[in-house]
Design a protein around this nucleic acid. Structure first.
Length: 554
RNA sequence: GCGCCUGUAGCUCAGCUGGAUAGAGCAACGGACUUCUAAUCCGUGGGUCCUGUGUUCGAAUCACAGCAGGCGUACCA
């Protein structure tokens, strides 16, 4: 509806200027929003107020002129008012609202989707946890935020690729190999003083047992550095499989897994450094190579080749991003834990030094999850082996509940996840409220069929029968859905959808309790059935983007 | 010290890129199932939007300063 009103105001302004009522001036951006107060109409615009300073007139005078020259050719508007400091309030005719439902029914599964992205290639990289242990609950939040951002971009017409980056070339994997090897030797009778810097979780011993079962004691008398390679590979591969399985259960599937070692195999890091040097962003200090990230606003320069001749993680990460752009992504989105935020300026320096615009990269920070058990914090770290796994949480509270819980808060704010409460409240989890609404609608549609009412075609509905205020409110809310998806995708803010869903479900539940859809009045029944059918489509599409089920029965 | 994030109802959080009298869920209390699903609905209370100054027609929203909490400040990843 907003999209219909914008041109009306623009045309009116042109008319005013032509008549000389207002001086020529470009129209600044203005809003058309549903006001909080119903008495202020269905929509209100601040157009006159934002114009005031440009044309040097009083806002109310401008509003008067704009209203006088409004050409409502479509006959949508009941009346227009000027209010307060210069708001223009629109009151729409009842049928105008109902007519909006045509789109919903026609587009069905595609309602709310758009071609905003026009095939632009976007990569979303997320989770990217090293396979040194199972995913914990903190990874879960990043996983679901990344997944839904990818869904949002897909829904708005982008070509999206989901990627998981594995730092398989660093020390962590060696530590993993060593950890399993030590547990293996311990298992086979050696007396081991297990070091604190090794991974402590019980899964390490499980892997050691597997290897012992399969290969016996053959590694006991081999050279340790050789054995570690095998243990590292074995454990890494096995843990990665577990991670993939956990993600699958959580509803997250990646298009591509990228190994850091691939960069070295293709000499990517060396080539990158050469290019940076050629462009003059590198200086030497003995063996050490520094990258002048301060040229791009970083607070200090960063080392890319260490004193020992090894490239830093940062060097590999720039090479990785160069590799991404080499794969022709127009835009790359990284989902990072908020503890990496200090890393952002240097990453931007990296891509800008390579000639890519700042907008080619967007970093979404996901605040870490504070895990609580009955109100008291649970310390978590992969190394100490003390953590609650994502899998445990998903098994406990269910995939839909877990996903919805993570999505309900802005990713930039801290999230307290209390296990006991999550379990206890699993039955009054907000996700059920929305799902129940959908199931109820399906139930109405089933009953309708039994009574001989099929969902009518748009042309068969007498829209004037949808004359209740709560029906207008429902339609207004349904109509808002496409804008919601666009805004949510643009801002990369999945949390807006659960809030919207809650609003829509609440309106529906209330409507349901107050009014009967199916009655002896055939015309009325068909009109309401059509409305309910449209609510169902909207709920289903929104839940679909969240990766949450829309059950037909509960 | 410096940088980033956060500060809104008792609790958990929204507030759509500056709009009119600041919202939701939970928790508390009182009501509604002979009906298309009561996992629902209806009603009642609750606020120094951390503080201060500024920007303008207008500030929870923007700028600056301060206070409080979290995180970061590696030739770790």
């Amino acid at each position: 509806m907003k999209k219909r009103l914008y041109p009306l105001i623009e045309q009116s302004l042109v008319a005013c200027m032509e008549k000389g009522l207002l001086p020529e001036a470009p129209l600044p951006p203005f809003d058309i929003e549903p006001p909080r107060e119903k008495a202020h109409g269905d929509y209100a615009t601040n157009a006159a107020m934002v114009l005031a300073s440009a044309v040097r007139r009083k806002p109310r005078d401008i509003a008067r002129a704009l209203v006088d020259h409004l050409d409502d050719a479509g006959g949508w508007i009941e009346k227009v008012e000027i209010a307060g400091p210069g708001f223009i309030n629109f009151f729409m005719k009842g049928e105008t609202w109902a007519a909006l439902l045509r789109d919903v029914d026609e587009l069905r599964d595609r309602y709310g989707f758009s071609d905003l992205g026009r095939g632009r290639r976007v990569q979303v990289e997320f989770v990217s946890a090293n396979p040194t242990g199972p995913l914990h609950i903190g990874h879960g939040r990043g996983a679901v935020v990344g997944d839904v951002i990818a869904n949002l971009l897909t829904a708005t017409g982008h070509a999206v690729s989901r990627e998981y980056y594995i730092n398989d070339a660093g020390n962590q994997m060696n530590t993993l190999g060593r950890s399993v090897l030590l547990r293996y030797r311990e298992l086979l009778g050696e007396r081991i003083d297990y070091p604190g810097e090794c991974y402590q979780g019980s899964y390490i011993a499980d892997l050691a047992r597997e290897i012992a079962d399969r290969h016996g004691s053959i590694f006991l008398d081999r050279d340790e550095s050789e054995s570690i390679v095998f243990f590292r590979e074995y454990a890494g591969e096995s843990i990665l499989q577990g991670i993939k399985e956990d993600l699958r259960v959580f509803g997250v599937v990646f298009d591509h897994y990228f190994n850091e070692s691939e960069l070295y195999r293709e000499d990517g890091v060396r080539k990158l450094l050469e290019e940076l040097e050629r462009k003059g962003f590198i200086y030497r200090d003995g063996v050490t190579l520094w990258f002048k990230t301060t040229d791009f606003g970083d607070e200090k320069d960063r080392v890319v080749i260490r004193e020992n001749g090894e490239p830093t993680y940062f060097a590999a990460d720039i090479a990785y991003h160069l590799n991404k752009y080499g794969r022709h992504f127009d835009k790359v989105i990284d989902i990072w834990g908020a503890d990496h935020h200090g890393y952002i300026p240097r990453m931007y320096a990296g891509i800008q030094a390579l000639g890519y615009p700042r907008e080619a990269l967007e970093v979404v920070l996901v605040q870490l999850v504070n895990l609580l058990r009955e109100g008291t914090p649970v310390a978590m770290s992969t190394r100490s082996g003390e953590f609650v796994t994502l899998r445990e949480v998903v098994d406990e509270v269910g995939r839909d509940g877990a996903r919805y819980n993570f999505l309900m808060r802005r990713s930039n704010s801290h999230l307290d996840f209390d296990l006991e409460i999550a379990k206890k409240q699993s039955n009054e989890n907000p996700v059920y409220y929305v799902q129940y609404g959908h199931a109820r609608i399906c139930s109405i549609l089933r009953t309708a069929l039994e009574k001989g009412y099929a969902v009518p075609r748009f042309e068969e509905v007498d829209l004037r029968r949808l004359d209740l205020p709560e029906e207008a409110e429902l339609i207004r809310t349904i109509d808002r859905f496409p804008e919601l998806i666009e805004g949510s995708a643009r801002a990369l803010e999945p949390h807006r959808i659960p809030f919207y869903l809650n609003d829509l479900a609440a309106l529906f539940h209330s409507y349901y309790n107050k009014n009967r859809v199916l009655s002896d009045d055939r015309e009325l029944s068909l009109a309401r059935l059509f409305l309910v059918h449209c609510i169902g489509i909207t709920l289903r599409n929104a839940l679909g983007i969240l990766g949450v089920a829309a059950p037909e029965r509960m």
